[in-house]
């Protein structure tokens, strides 16, 4: 399998260790990732709010670039997924939009006809590769208890994305279970992490995060698991700001799903990946190189 890889700005610029874990896991599963000069997806909360027309045409440039290369897009960011999938829907369901974006693309020597699709890592792993196949690659049971947060932009709008149940998502729980992890049920599982309103109302955005953290920590998990880089940053870095603003004392480690998968697969370079985290988690890396070392130390 081969995809045009769309890391998204948040991962590529701010969370490169997440990108690393996606690349490690993809290689292990035989997925080839092709890098292309994509622009910002564009980020829906800012660009689409500012101008729907600019949003649509800039998204069309990304879709056209993938189409030019004969590839479907694979992304690790739920915001990019929603933006591109929604734009694709807007363009392909309305002939006037198809005409409009092609007029604009013509000015930069590109065109779009709508043949290629866009999926998220979540969909690749659960819907295309499947739990059983992933299980065959698991070498180590991770044995922690977690709360999962799939992310608003993966779940809604459901009629277009169809990634998981928008009110009661279960697939990410299944994906952690196959790694030996226990997913815990918790209140407000589908509630937003607060990122979406951060630019417009900082205080409200952290108050939303406070509410979400309260629900998550109520069931005493070892960590939170996400599939979106913005949610990752919101939880991992945001909890410190919540603590400062509201006098709470949260210290919840956060993992992006492919990091856990890479740990369970015992892939190399995971030490470096985990060193990118600000809140140190309960898991450390075991890879073919340090496995022997560990055994020597223990014996």
């Amino acid at each position: 399998m081969k995809y045009a890889f769309f890391p998204g700005c948040t991962i590529a610029y701010w969370l490169p260790f997440i990108e690393k874990s996606i690349r490690l896991v993809s290689a292990e599963l035989g997925i080839e990732l092709i890098d292309l000069p994509f622009n910002c997806c564009p980020e829906p909360n800012t660009v689409r709010s500012f101008s729907s027309e600019s949003w649509l045409v800039l998204a069309a440039r990304n879709l056209a670039l993938a189409e030019e290369n004969g590839l479907d897009i694979l992304t690790g960011c739920t915001g990019c997924l929603e933006s591109l999938a929604l734009a694709k829907h807007e363009i392909e369901s309305k002939p006037e939009n198809m005409e409009k974006v092609n007029q604009a693309l013509e000015s930069i020597g590109m065109s779009y006809s709508g043949k290629k699709s866009i999926i998220h890592m979540h969909q690749l792993l659960y819907d295309i590769i499947g739990i059983d196949k992933i299980g065959e690659h698991v070498k180590r049971s991770l044995k922690i208890r977690v709360v999962t947060h799939s992310g608003c932009h993966l779940l809604r709008p459901y009629n277009i994305l169809q990634a998981d149940d928008p009110e009661a998502p279960i697939k990410l729980d299944k994906l952690v279970e196959i790694l030996g992890i226990e997913p815990l049920d918790y209140m407000d599982k589908t509630m937003c992490c607060g990122t979406g309103t951060r630019r417009a109302n900082r205080e409200a955005s952290f108050a939303i995060l406070r509410e979400k953290m309260a629900s998550m920590t109520m069931v005493e998990p070892d960590a939170a698991v996400v599939f979106c880089p913005s949610c990752f940053t919101s939880f991992e870095s945001g909890q410190k700001i919540v603590n400062r603003m509201f006098g709470t004392n949260y210290r919840l480690p956060v993992y992006y799903y492919t990091e856990l998968l890479a740990l369970a697969m015992e892939l190399s370079e995971m030490d470096t990946v985990l060193s990118g985290h600000r809140v140190k988690g309960p898991l450390s890396a075991i890879s073919p190189e340090n496995r022997n070392l560990n055994q020597t130390v223990q014996s």
């Binding site: 490169p16 260790f17 990108e19 994509f38 604009a104 930069i108 470096t272």
Partner: peptide, 19 residues
Amino acid sequence: KYNLPQLQLPDHDQIKKLL
């Protein structure tokens, strides 16, 4: 630090034109 390939950036002029 993570041995990642250099990030491919879009052509600014194209983005400007579309905006």
